[in-house]
Design a protein around this nucleic acid. Sequence first.
DNA 1: ACACGTATGAAAAACGCTTTCCTGATGAAT
DNA 2: ATTCATCAGGAAAGCGTTTTTCATACGTGT
Lengths: 340, 340
Amino acid sequence: MKFEAATIKDIAIALGLSTSTVSRALRDSHEISIATKQLVLEYATRINYHPNPIALSLKEKRSRSIGVIVAEIANSFFSQAINGIESVAKDKGYNVMISQTHESFDKEVMTLQYLASRSIDGLLISVSSGTENLDHLKALHERGFPIVFFDRIVEEIQTHKVMVDNFRGAYDATLHLINKGYKHIAVIAGPENLSISRERIAGYREALAQTRVKPGKALIKYSRYAGLQLQEVEQAVSQLLKLRPRPDAIFTASDKLTTNCMRVLKSKGIRIPQDIALVGFSNSDLIELLHPPLTVVRQPAFEMGQIATSLLLQLIESKKPVKEFERKILNTNLIVQASS
Amino acid sequence: MKFEAATIKDIAIALGLSTSTVSRALRDSHEISIATKQLVLEYATRINYHPNPIALSLKEKRSRSIGVIVAEIANSFFSQAINGIESVAKDKGYNVMISQTHESFDKEVMTLQYLASRSIDGLLISVSSGTENLDHLKALHERGFPIVFFDRIVEEIQTHKVMVDNFRGAYDATLHLINKGYKHIAVIAGPENLSISRERIAGYREALAQTRVKPGKALIKYSRYAGLQLQEVEQAVSQLLKLRPRPDAIFTASDKLTTNCMRVLKSKGIRIPQDIALVGFSNSDLIELLHPPLTVVRQPAFEMGQIATSLLLQLIESKKPVKEFERKILNTNLIVQASS
DNA sequence: ACACGTATGAAAAACGCTTTCCTGATGAAT
DNA sequence: ATTCATCAGGAAAGCGTTTTTCATACGTGT
């Protein structure tokens, strides 16, 4: 079943004009008489004419759409960020194409390939936890393709980046645990290849350094899939529980990691915070309904999406190659509740 | 900054052939000699040639992309459904464009307008709670534009529809409450103009009818924005609490409604289920971490997305106008936990 | 009456691709 | 020797726009 839309040609024929006249009338060119404009405009609205965006894209060599690659849209942080992205993009007449990697490197490469072949004008990406190699991004970037990183950024590629102060967020959360009197604070972070994991671990270390405690290596766990896989978190937690002295607090450094860690602790019958305190990065809007309500580090996801999109559009619409890149660092927000 | 991709013309010039020969060689036409094909193919891979999808779209009058309109992607049900949609669409080489209405009718009309003008080949939609008028959808549908409804369907428009057995889901949930001994069961549903609200209320009524209790009108509340606005839920709950006898259980008929109702009850210091039991539709994956873990009616969201997409692609790719429409009704799943 | 400027609008090109219609050459059949 | 069929490949049209170039008619000033 096809569906035919009205074209400029239809209008031209119906009105006995040439397509160029119609085109100019529609774009309100001064070389068309008022009367003709009136006529064309009226007829166009009557038959509900809309210029074919595909024809326009072909002509202008731009599709007015941007690609977004995230791990999972079913993740509060990302869905909030996407809301921010959409709000700015739509505002500027851009369309947003969303793709998910589910934390798989292969999917990231494929999806990037796919989006690029769909002729998007630019890309917003928070790399997957499985990303070990940057060739796919570098290739695009080197050809002058506009890319902006947000959240999980990549240091090796020179372009705009939007993130939170991960170090500070982790530092604050850990310090909070210290102040609450916890002595043996463990951390579970995403994979080490992600800069956010490293920064958050660094913040954690720095807070502990204040107490003159150098955390044993055993207290630091990395999670290959950033907590997406429950059994991976299960394993990390089990290992932590075997330590002596047993950790009395866990700091989880990403959204899924936090809720899945909570799930694991519950399933093991461990009480939060009596047995072990839990503090983590999370943007879920259900945290205060949890048992117990979680103390979380919240990121300004919506705002990050907005800023990243503005920067991307700036890049896309810039006439000359951009050489100076922004590195926006936003603040996190520690919300203290009963879990710590 | 623009970014130039190789075209068929580049290849033609480089190889001293005509564009038509190159085109045919690339699509493996029999009218091109093996040697020429080899030559073209090799050169094409070497310069990393990819056909321009926009030019293709213009030529073929199809964009190979479908639009999706939902209330909110930051809603478990919808993000799961979108996963299902994406999995099928990507598999068939289609691109997915997602738009949110945030339960606003105006946004729905605008976004539909926008998507249609972006020349999508078809539409998947779960109408917004604010949808009171169907002209925008009817207009499109009448022009032969492929549409498939899922979740929140519209009876007046003849096309494929995918939904759950809302009546049964609500019936089961209510019956569960009855069996648990609750006597005064209230319900909060989405707006009355949505068929899912009406069906869920009907299921609720039917279960109560079994107990020979005809629920007073006061026990049934509608929520204009399907629970998206907290204060709306707050108001409904407050009214319910004023009733005498006070309801001892609430059945909430949608995702946001359920969590927001829980939020309101908590803020009022009402214990669940001791003071009031709570059962609701929800696809959140955090329900077992809540306090208390919620008894929920779960929908097969991923599967719904998949089925709806298959049906839509079928519609799009059908040569002749489709006259027979499917009405797929899936089963819900009652997950009993501590809240009831 | 002549060149000239000024509206007005038509024709054509271009974007990248596919496809229909040709052309030129070769070899077979009459 | 002439006609035909066959094959490889080129030229051009068309998809819907915008834009550049070109054409016509009308006044105007001399």
